[in-house]
Amino acid sequence: MKSLTQVKGPACPLGLAGVDTDQLIPARFMKRPRSEGYGGFLLHDLRRGEAGVEKPDFPLNRPVWRGAEIMVARRNFGSGSSREAAVYALADHGVRVVLAPTFGDIFASNAVKNGLLPAVLDEADIEDLLAALAATPDLPVSIDLAEQTVAWGNRAVTFAIDPVWREQLLNGWDDIDVTRSFAGEIARFRDADGARRPWARPSVKA
């Protein structure tokens, strides 16, 4: 996994609350192999009008924010379905950080697994940042993961992130490699548990 330390550049103010993963990528696009790239499906139905034509006033369609690596949203970003494809769509579109007051639990976990930072900012800070971006669309925003700060204009605020996730993102650590280093503990647990909870395995004869 690619590590993430600092990101600086334009930030796309999505400004919506409750952007569920069905909005991030509608289910009908998830049949494709990841290798084909999921970036084009990001926010597909919100970005486009009825004939599939992009709405020019939708933030992600505005030239200034089209390539933004940072996205700013209101509460409960990524709620709903566990589809990791929602993170693939963001990552393949080039988004590396999402700033929001709260995230869907499963989405945030999926994000970290793919090197995307779900940074939790106070609601008031999000509102200030959205207002600043409304006034100055190309305002550069800087994110420093080691320092846990977001800076724009003359403001710098801290964001929250689970400390384990922070380490993982900073170092680009892969869960499976870490877990495999505990293979002995897992095998011992498995054996002891089989004796302790014999009912926990499916009955052999269905």
Partner: peptide, 19 residues
Amino acid sequence: GIGASEVAHVLMTQTLWQK
């Protein structure tokens, strides 16, 4: 519920990291 990376993790290790 879990995402695809966690599904792969469980498939390969039968465990998951959880807070």
